[in-house]
Nucleic acid binder design. Structure first.
Lengths: 202, 202, 202, 202
DNA sequence: TATGAATGAGTCTTCATTCAT
DNA sequence: CATGAATGAAGACTCATTCAT
């Protein structure tokens, strides 16, 4: 029974994933999910409360993983003026990121662009806000160490972060090889670092 | 009759605008538009062919204006190595842009993020591609004049342009005052210019 | 004005003919007719009372011509025992018939098979009944002259006549050359005549 | 539940039958069927996929029975030159046929004349073609045994078969008693047989 | 746990016709 | 004579969810 239950649960989840990825949240249909999963439509409601519940069950883990990854980058090391540059060159970190992105390309696309109508709608903003908060903290710390660092406006910081989000969006939208992504990141970090120095005067 | 007709036409358009802005294309309902406009549902179809037709009637002008604005920036002046910087500082141009953005904030948000299901879906990409094409041409010209200019990868250029799109998105999403926007642009252009010089080696 | 009016009248008629032939009565749409005719939709109602009115304007003449043709065959000559056979061989009559059929193939198809919903629906029956009545009269006369002629049941007569209708239907449905039609009639008359003699004992 | 389900299923089917018979396929409305059946409109779609599906559920069995009957007549006996005549006189076979026709009068009328718009449209042709094919095979066999048999044109054969179809149509259209039908068949077979001999020279 | 039945509001679009001008 | 606007009902079908069993 336990096993059977898990089986169904998972097959519903798998079916829903396919359906959502294929059609986006709004267009996805419970009927169709049930059909794909080989489960009675109403039986789905024994496993999930509603459509949105399934959606979250699929995307929340990825969202958490993503957030956790970001958090880790900004906490596990001591603040370092050259961190940003360093970050750009630390291949292992980039590799982890690329791994993650490639593994969840489709879910991320879903999350970023096709969540309208669900409780995850506005994820782009949520994510950008999260990045902004984290970055802001980071900059505060940095400023304590290097008081000469010039301020940048909160909104610009926000736009920078939403840029990162859109960068993520572009990557998952285009089918780039890992090598291409790595190349891109190199350009990206050089570009960003230069701009950053210009603004902060460091 | 003429006047009456225009009245209804406009009230339908206004009602539809509100509805679309409030719910996005997919969620907007013809019934609701009719109710808002104080018009018989079927009568709408004497003015517009279908839902999408109304949608386009609202957004196509804005889209065209936007594209025209971009095109104008890239054609009416001779190629100039310092153009980008110059562009960044030409207050009048920025002012025009800000005017436009502030005037059509809501429509642009609609266009960028809530057009799924309509014939305008994928506008973010369409716009980014358009920018990419225009920018690519511009860089070709520049390279002819300054052969030393280093190449940047097409994908990076694409990401840069999709950044501009997301910048636009951020601006219309947050309720910034004109002054805030202007401030932002100043930072933006300095940042971008610095990054650009780093990459192109100029 | 008169001329102008006739122009419109005729162009509506022509447009309607195309529409009806293309879609049948039910599926044909007034809007579409108006569009084809280059006439305002509501203006049609200045020339015709309603959809059905147009339909009749197109098909009644053909129907009348057809009925008149039948009537002529059965009245203009004195009753003659060998008439049927004779009829079968009188090439000129057959030719007239073929002319008529070929000229109005499409209208006849419309009339016979696609009039559902109009006041002409049930034309197959109407026509068969008409033929039955005419034939019945004819047989009465014949019986007066040749009292030995055996009776055939009214229903059989009716079926015979509805056969003629379906023969007409088959001809207009298949794109037969005039020669093929003529050949067919020869077989048809021989067959029919033989059967007829068997039943009437003549 | 099983019983309940069957109840609803059948009441939908019954309601649909009435509706279709009353209005023909095109004019029948799902709303109206639901009303007649005392069922929620959308609930119908738990039993049938769509309008056409219901239509087929009603008519396919009758169609199959009809085709099967024809096939049986033409296969279960050895070819026999006098078969046709024999067929005409074999009362039991005619009786079966009459039974079938009387039992499904209304469905047959529906099938033959009011199926436009459904997947059964063109049944008259389908049926006539089927008869033609079967008859053609039969004649081939006969010709092998009696090489002297003269040919008749394919189109004439086709018309003969479509005559049978229209005979069927006439029978189901008029409310004849079984006795009347039987009488009619006697005449019909004598007539047909005589014509046939005339043409084939046998 | 599983199911099939049920619900009721919802979708966009088309229709023939009438009315006021 | 001509028009565009207006009407109101109708079309088939889908939706996420709940209920009884």
């Amino acid at each position: 029974m336990r096993i059977l239950k898990d089986d169904k649960y998972n097959s519903i989840l798998r079916a829903a994933r396919e359906e959502f990825i294929g059609k986006g949240f709004k267009e996805a249909s419970m009927r169709s999910i049930a059909r794909r999963a080989g489960v009675g439509l109403s039986n789905i409601y024994n496993y999930f409360r509603n459509k949105d519940d399934i959606y979250r069950a699929i995307l929340e883990p990825i969202k958490n993983e993503l957030f956790a990854f970001i958090a880790r980058q900004h906490t596990e090391e001591t603040v370092d003026f050259n961190r940003l540059a360093a970050f750009g060159h630390k291949e292992e970190i980039i590799d982890q990121y690329i791994d993650f992105v490639c593994k969840h390309r489709e879910e991320l696309r879903l999350l970023l662009y096709r969540s309208e109508g669900s409780s995850m709608e506005g994820f782009r903003d949520t994510f950008a806000d999260y990045l902004t908060r984290v970055s802001h903290n980071y900059m505060e710390l940095e400023k304590k160490q290097y008081p000469a660092t010039r301020d940048i406006s909160p909104f610009f910081l926000h736009v920078m972060c939403s840029w990162m989000v859109s960068v993520l969006g572009e990557i998952v939208t285009h089918d780039l090889s890992r090598e291409k992504i790595r190349e891109f990141f190199r350009e990206y970090f050089r570009f960003e670092f230069a701009g950053w120095r210009e603004l902060t005067g460091t």
